[in-house]
Design a protein around this nucleic acid. Sequence first.
DNA 1: TCTGGGGTCCTAGGACCC
DNA 2: TCTGGGGTCCTAGGACCC
Length: 422
Amino acid sequence: MFGLADCNNFYCSCERVFHPELRDVPVVVLSNNDGCVIARSEESKALGIKMGTPLYQVRELLEKNRVAVFSSNYTLYGSMSGRVMSLLASYTPSLDIYSIDEAFLDLSNMGDGSYLKTYGEEIAARVGRATGIPISIGIAPTKTLAKVGSKFAKKYPGYKRCCLIDTDERRRKALELFDVGDVWGVGRRIAEKLNYHGIHTAADFANKSESWVRSHFNVTTLRTWKELNGVSCVSIEELPRKKSICTSRSFADAGVTDWNVLEEAVANFASRSAQKLREQKSYCLSVTTFAYTSRFRIDVPSHVIYGSHHLTVASNDTAEIIRAALRVLREGRAEGGFAYKKAGVILWNIVTHEGVQQDLFDPVDRKKQAALLEAIDRINHKNGHDTVRVAVQGTDIRFGLKHEYLSRHYTTDIDDILVAKN
DNA sequence: TCTGGGGTCCTAGGACCC
DNA sequence: TCTGGGGTCCTAGGACCC
């Protein structure tokens, strides 16, 4: 049996922990640059605010309904996620952290149905009490069904935050009430195709024959079908090492027109990506850089820079990766004044230390390089991000992002700890 | 005017091999 | 006019997830 624990409206809930006066007030959290709405409390959902809506389209609605607005504060959310996950880990021999606000618990051999139900209720209550974050839990023989369960647990208070789908009868009832488009693994396109064939509920889909599903869809969708029928086949292997690492940002307002600022931004993205690479103790062979003008503006000249550079020896050296990223950027430079709205650096072809193919004629002393990087990382860890950096990264972040509604770093910065007054 | 960021997996088609 | 058969590897793009 699998349990899926899902934090309710996670980012909004994190803000509420430190703003208890907002408990019954609509709350939204914005994306980077305060661009779009990416998290909504139940009250905000009821106002009809959709996920991913640009802020400017709902600004009036937010003001009229006195919605509390926050810029995203990933430092806070990451730290709160850590608290939730460490509690969840104490309830299972194996916890698979699937995202910042979701995790699968291995609940095999934990006793019969009624025991599991109580166990789930207890987990949810404890996490809520200890962290202030409300969570919902679904328990079922497959991960896809556990996800279905968690949605029921969230929707109906009667479940006491835990919904168990263990028998065939319970499974049938649940799937009949569940929209096929809400099934994990069924996105917009597949939902459209299923609807076209007259399939609307998860039960409609589960009742189709295997051969029908196989002939109309690919193996991924077939797996989803099996999971709905109680056959577990989606494995969430822990991927300790990422296969690609990306750092990208949109630029505020109209974008970046100064080429030097763009280079500085790309240097910073490359540096951040190299740090992430070292954190997972990996090396990359390929560096891709991209920069493009607004996808939404048809009234201004558009331009796309996109290219890759391949290293001869896999590296995680900041300077080397910056050099590669800037080289691609410069190769893509074109005449004309363009306003770049977004840029980023992707590292891929990632290998472990053992997987690094040495070069007989390598001019770089890799041992010295590693020692230097380790020293830099240690200094930066102690004294703050980018205390030591490459000159081309610049001294101030001129392409700075908009964070007009940022809350404080309550759990990670000594100066931001809440003070209780008498 | 203003429109996020970071991932994984699968498949079709092209390039190449004998 | 007629133009083989059987593979592998790589990449771009599409679909999905949060």
